[in-house]
Amino acid sequence: MAGFPVYGFLASLPWTALAVAGVLAATFAVAVAQRRHSVMDVAWGPGFVAVAAVSWLLSAGTGDDGRRLLLLLLTGVWGLRLGIHIGWRARGGHEDPRYEAILGGAPGSRNAYALRRVYLPQGMVMFFVSLTAQVGMFATGPLGWAALLGVVLWAVGFVFETVGDWQLAQFKKDPAHKGTVLNTGLWRYTRHPNYFGDAAVWTGLFLIAADSWPGILTVLSPALMIWALAGKTGKRLTEKAMSARPGYKQYVESTSGFIPWPPRRPAGGR
């Protein structure tokens, strides 16, 4: 790979893996103390920030400074915002039903089971998805049009995720909305503006990395994130939990499942 510091990048991998392990270990300690492993959700975004920060430090003097700084800032803004939002939302709460469903039938120690079923898989995903930023940090080529497109896509995703979360928080503040469905604002155009935003953010980061060889080889990293959000855990589990709410079936029929799109008219509607 001409121009790419292969050995420097490979030498950084144990340190970025250690950053992931450190975040997970600290999160596990807090989870055991609070008796709720859903604190992993709070650490998800900051974990990527920790990896990006370590990669930024280790790529100094090798990768393109503009790309390094851009990846650090964009990953940092996204990850810290997400961590603060989820932490504020979950303050003083109990175990999330999703985690209760996973850990409720734990054979033996619940905490040991959580290490295998929650922390290890999420740590592996965190490391793999963050390879986009890790490789991009060491890429030597200058920023080009793909990186500019990536910044635009990141901004679109960040707006969708941030505004979508804010609109949902405002909706939940009104007791009259309890048990109902949010179908206004961004939620009128996609049932999951926050998940779509997350996917767009990581696709944008990929384009910034892919602007210079060998960043394009990390395409499976954002693909894994999108697959998890749209098909495996995020969208599927959320909709399963929401399915019993009055009006949700009609909401599903009229509103795009992931990519924002004008709402469809209900069957038989005018």
Rank of each mutant, 00 (worst) to 15 (best):
R116K: 13
L80G: 04
S212N: 03
V156M: 07
Q250M: 10
L57D: 02
T218S: 09
H94A: 14
T238W: 00
A31E: 00
Y248Q: 12
R245F: 08
L149K: 00
L220R: 05
L80V: 15
L115P: 03
G76V: 10
P246H: 08
Y248A: 13
R265G: 08
G164E: 04
P262D: 02
V156H: 01
A11M: 11
S256F: 00
L18E: 12
L153N: 02
A223R: 03
I208P: 01
G157W: 03
I216L: 10
P193Q: 12
V77L: 11
A101Q: 14
G108C: 12
H192N: 15
W202V: 11
A25D: 13
F196E: 04
T233F: 04
V163I: 14
L182A: 12
V163T: 10
G92P: 08
P107V: 07
T27C: 07
Q122W: 08
G66Y: 05
L10C: 08
A209Q: 08
E100S: 07
K235Q: 13
K235N: 13
T190S: 13
P97E: 15
S55T: 11
S55R: 03
P222R: 02
A176F: 06
I208D: 04
R91T: 10
G257T: 07
A147W: 02
G197F: 04
R36I: 10
L168C: 09
V6C: 01
W187T: 14
Y195W: 11
R67C: 02
L74N: 00
F48W: 05
G204D: 15
R67Q: 07
A33Q: 13
R245C: 12
F48S: 09
V20T: 14
G144A: 12
G141M: 10
G105T: 07
R35E: 15
S243W: 05
N183M: 13
D41Q: 00
S12T: 14
L10Y: 05
A11D: 12
L115N: 12
A244G: 10
Q250T: 14
A2E: 15
S12G: 13
M126E: 15
M124R: 10
D65Y: 00
Q250W: 04
K173C: 09
L186D: 09
G3P: 02
L220I: 05
P14N: 09
D198H: 01
V151A: 11
P46A: 01
A19C: 08
G108E: 15
A112C: 06
K235M: 12
E100I: 05
G197L: 10
G63K: 01
L120F: 08
P193K: 05
S55Q: 07
